[in-house]
Design a binder for these strands. Sequence first.
DNA 1: AAGATTACCTGAAGGC
DNA 2: TGCCTTCAGGTAATCT
Length: 289
Amino acid sequence: MPELPEVETVVRQLRRSLVGQRVRSIILHTPSTIRCRHFPARRLIGCTIRAVRRRGKFIRLDLAAPSRSPQGTGVTVLVHLRMTGSLRIHAGRPPRERHDHIDLVLDGRPEPACLRFSDIRKFGGWWLLPGDVADAAAPLAALGPEPLEISRDDFRRLLAGHKQRVKTLLLDQRRLAGMGNIYTDEALFAAGIHPEARACDVPAAKVDALWRAMRRILRAAIRHCGSSTSDFVGADGRRGRYQEHHQVYGRADQPCRRCGARLKYLRVAGRGTTFCPRCQALQRGRKKR
DNA sequence: AAGATTACCTGAAGGC
DNA sequence: TGCCTTCAGGTAATCT
């Protein structure tokens, strides 16, 4: 599932091949993939890709309008992969397959290339926004801080300020933008925190351990080009390798790699949740409900 | 009004 | 074999 490390992997690959390229045309096989209605997709034609960035789990393409164009502000394209979306770079334009929804045809060097959005489950989408308002507009405006940028003190304040279960809080993109199910479970295990603990009840030492574990795990996952537990592939079509380092995700009923206890499976915040009942015990007297 | 649950969507996997 | 159910989960919408 594309979470922060997977999106960062795609962004770094796209950046190498897209920056400086001009949009020749856009082909909408599945128009409903475009989530904002009032921006005509044809305004992308002739624009030049200036930057490829990540914000939370969004991929952001900033395009400059052609000179002598009436819309001087340029265009920002946001792409969210949700569960099964992918962005791939292709030489030329291969025949459309079943789950291909958008082709952005580019002036390639030396040959034309295309950026193709595919999504088996059609949860993912594109947002087209005028470049000068992108930061202040939905869906970016509501996002919380980046997990790799939030300070330890701000992270302490974030947890102290909420009674929600800590896992629910970490997954809430308005509080923290980029954590998903895999890295939340891995970080909570590394810090020894029960996923159902209330955020404000986590002892200070464990909050700090969680902050450090989150940063260490996200960085390691980025180095391994993300986790491919089912169908994630980068823009080059290659799978990530971090799934080989998962301690708990996908390992329910198997022995804990730290203490040997059998890993338990729960549903928390509507998500499958795997944790070690011994390494991540709930504090006495602070049980749920 | 926060917190929990469901809808969206498809394919894989398991049960019988 | 084949049909049915369940599961996967990011986020918006809906419910309690």
